[in-house]
Amino acid sequence: MTLAPLLVFAATEERSSLFLILPDIHELIWGIVSFVVLVFLIWKFAGPALAATLEARQQAVVQDLREAETAKEQAESLLEDYRKQLADAKDEANRIIEAARETAESLKAELVSKAEAEADQIVSKARSEVAAERERALAEVRQEVADLSIELAERVVQESIDRDAQRQLIERYLNDLERMS
């Protein structure tokens, strides 16, 4: 067999010069026997159990991995849901804020225009009142001036004339004055 050269070279005599590096025939044979027996025993007795255990371990690991994978997927979908809900809520909030802003905006505009109108009204009312007051004051002043003028004229000419005719005269004169001014 292929091991024949080894057997030929194996040092059989005591302490040859190559004693250290040549295999000893007895050790060689017993080594071969041991190895063959070992391989046989291991794969006869230990092998199946070993393979089964490792297989079971691998199965367990695969199972664990798969479970972890499923859990991860679930967690991810849950997270996705939450994220979506959060986004929806945010949209809703934005919408509400927008609506509120619009309402406030229109309310403001309405208030402003109402206030302006009121102010205008007040101003114009005040203005017309002022005008009326002035008118009345002017009329009073004119009356006063006329009376005073008559008295003055009566006293100056000492001549009594018809009070109504005098008034008419003065009235005309005042009107003339007004026209001229």
């Binding site: 000893d24 025939i25 007895h26 050790e27 044979i29 017993w30 080594g31 041991s34 190895f35 027996v37 070992l38 025993l41 291991i42 007795f45 230990a46 159990a49 070993l50 089964a52 255990t53």
Partner: peptide, 25 residues
């Protein structure tokens, strides 16, 4: 049959290897 210390140690190693791989399983 030429069994010396080296051969005995070979046997010991063989037995240990077998037990090492056999006992836990």
């Amino acid at each position: 049959w030429g069994i010396n210390r080296v051969v005995l140690l070979t046997f010991l190693a063989t037995i240990l290897t077998f037990l090492f791989l056999y006992i836990p399983f």
